[in-house]
Design a protein around this nucleic acid. Structure first.
Lengths: 158, 158
DNA sequence: TACACGAAGTTCAAATTCGAACAATCTTGA
DNA sequence: TCAAGATTGTTCGAATTTGAACTTCGTGTA
């Protein structure tokens, strides 16, 4: 190994700020979804991804799109199934596969939660930054995702 | 309530990218610290904050500076104490208080982990962005932290 | 067909997180 | 001095996450 490439003060500050912003944001989002709709953030994500995929998705696709491991997804889908928001059926083209689908109740719950969630994300994440700042953040995040997803099984391929 | 202020496609994409980048980054950092130094990321943060504060800090300050609740900090400090990396003593000026301090072994472990950690953060978070992109991200994160910390008990006051 | 290999989901134990409740202590104001 | 209220840190139970082991099934090859 060569000399360690230490972070400059500014790089460190940005890194810590990035982590802190993520922590604060997810904490508030979590709290609001819980209070407002009785959902955790991972659960909301599952419902939202299913909805975006016309109501159904295979478990693996759902896990890949989301922020959890396979076992974590099994757990969350089981919780959502208990709550009647999601159902499971086997995949016709692959007997190993399981398709999770949004129930009517799940759609209703998602609809009920979505406006408040969007409002909060806007308040926390978009407002308070002027357009140039938001653009700056968006560009940086884009570049970061591109960098991180290189050679990674990333969210989507299209 | 007025009309819901939905997120534009670009705002949503940026939000999801922000979350995803955070997830991927912390996952890789976690893994590297675990493999390289036998520390979780929260544990590394505790050691680093103590070191930055000349080796000791009260529990509440540590919890405020870090990313966990009070009870979470108690748990992690207990783990670090079992491992011999951190000690506890009571605060002379306040009998309720507990001061956590870095042991020699804790300092050594932190030193051993720091270079690899810095290297990884640089690789994942700094490299792969050109200077303009990094500046853009840094500015956005700064603005975001300023926005989130307004009226919040934030990391520091100085 | 039969076999080996990989992939899909689930289940399990262990670790971690959070909030609420608690005991101890400090602080303030009369 | 003393009581009321706030702070500090720990402990407890419940929920969640993760990786590993496991079962079931598809795929490719002889």
């Amino acid at each position: 190994m060569g000399d360690p490439r230490w972070l400059t003060e500014r790089e460190l500050k940005t890194w810590q700020g990035f982590l802190m912003a993520g922590t604060l944001l997810t904490r508030k989002v979590e709290q609001q979804l819980r209070d407002d709709a009785g959902l955790s953030h991972p659960q909301y994500e599952v419902l939202a991804r299913l909805s975006a995929a016309d109501g159904e998705l295979r478990m693996t696709e759902l896990a890949g799109a989301a922020l959890t491991s396979k076992s974590g997804l099994s757990y969350q889908v089981a919780q959502l199934e208990k709550a009647g928001l999601v159902g499971r059926r086997s995949c016709p083209s692959d007997d190993r596969g399981v398709i999770a689908y949004l129930t009517d109740e799940g759609q209703a719950r998602l609809r009920a939660a979505a406006a408040g969630h969007a409002e909060l994300v806007r308040t926390l994440f978009v407002d308070g930054l002027n357009p140039e700042q938001f653009t700056a953040l968006a560009d940086g995040v884009d570049a970061l995702c591109g960098h991180l997803c290189t050679g990674e099984p990333c969210v989507e391929a299209g």
